[in-house]
């Protein structure tokens, strides 16, 4: 059994993971205090159009409508994190449930679920997300739903593989022969043992979800009421010759966030699967 202090020691041994955690906390703080740091609507004109960075009233410059880039980034952090977390939660709910059912029952149930998963894995997921959001009109809900719908297959496969291998492990067979119910076996015996790789994948999936959301917004499929990083870059695309800062800073915000999440994910992997981490040399 992994003790909490062991966990933190293993996590802290990975310097990148600690750095990632620090960045991530900074971004969360930025998102939480966005309205305090940058009061007012990020969509409103704050200064003259096309102000370069380090201008008096726009630290990171302004866009063609005089909106403050820094304010947009702070408010955009909320949307990114919100969508990243909720869509991952939804994908986890779909993926782990289907994967657990397939892995535990095996046979025909497994076959049917895996065919279904394969179908979703074959479909070019970004195209499906675009089609879904476009047809059902862009909003936070449709975006979260679309991201969840295209992201669950890897989680389902992972959960299935874990359940499949744990199901034949002797301690699970011992639970069957000592008369424990299926529910007890799934919840008490198998799930706790399959959790570590699922947690690690989920943390990486938050990063992918943020990338997906930004890509959708970049194409103009973001929630029209929410300022987001992808939207800012999309809007800056046509004026990149005049105003490089409009696309550079929001882009850096995405890179930092996603990088931080990936680093934390690797740290979690090292801490939760010590055997794997060691074999990575």
């Amino acid at each position: 059994m992994m003790m909490k202090s062991d966990f933190w020691r293993a996590f802290a041994r990975n310097k990148g993971a600690v750095l990632g955690l620090v960045i991530l906390i900074a971004i969360v703080v930025l998102a939480v205090f966005a309205s305090v740091l940058f009061p007012g609507d990020p969509w409103d004109m704050a200064t003259a159009p096309f102000q370069p960075p380090l201008s008096d009233d726009a630290l990171l410059g302004s866009d063609m409508l005089g909106r403050d880039i820094a304010s947009g980034i702070a408010h955009g952090a909320r949307v990114s994190l919100l969508i990243g977390l909720t869509s991952t939660a939804a994908a986890l709910a779909i993926g782990v449930t289907l994967g657990a059912l397939a892995g535990f029952h095996g046979g025909k149930v497994d076959d049917a679920i895996m065919r279904f998963t394969e179908l979703f894995q074959t479909i070019p997921n970004f195209v499906l997300a675009v089609v879904l959001v476009a047809i059902f009109t862009p909003s936070l809900t449709t975006i979260v739903a679309a991201i969840a719908i295209v992201s669950w297959p890897p989680l389902a496969r992972l959960a299935r593989a874990e359940f499949l291998s744990l199901r034949t492990r002797e301690f699970v067979q011992a639970a069957i022969t000592t008369g424990q119910s299926n529910t007890t076996i799934i919840l008490r015996q198998i799930l706790p043992n399959s959790l570590s790789p699922i947690i690690v994948s989920a943390s990486l999936m938050v990063a992918t979800a943020i990338l997906l959301e930004s890509s959708l917004s970049f194409l103009g499929l973001g929630d029209p009421n929410a300022m987001s990083w992808g939207y800012m870059i999309g809007a800056a695309r046509t004026v990149i010759r005049q105003a490089w800062w409009m696309s550079v800073f929001p882009g850096l915000a995405i890179v930092l966030t996603v990088l931080a999440l990936n680093l934390v994910g690797e740290g979690l992997n090292d801490a939760l699967n010590p055997k794997l981490a060691r074999s990575r040399g």
């Binding site: 970049f218 870059i233 882009g251 890179v255 996603v258 990088l259």
Partner: peptide, 8 residues
């Protein structure tokens, strides 16, 4: 490369 949006 893993963390950067490809369009950016």
């Amino acid at each position: 490369a893993y963390a950067t949006p490809i369009y950016w």
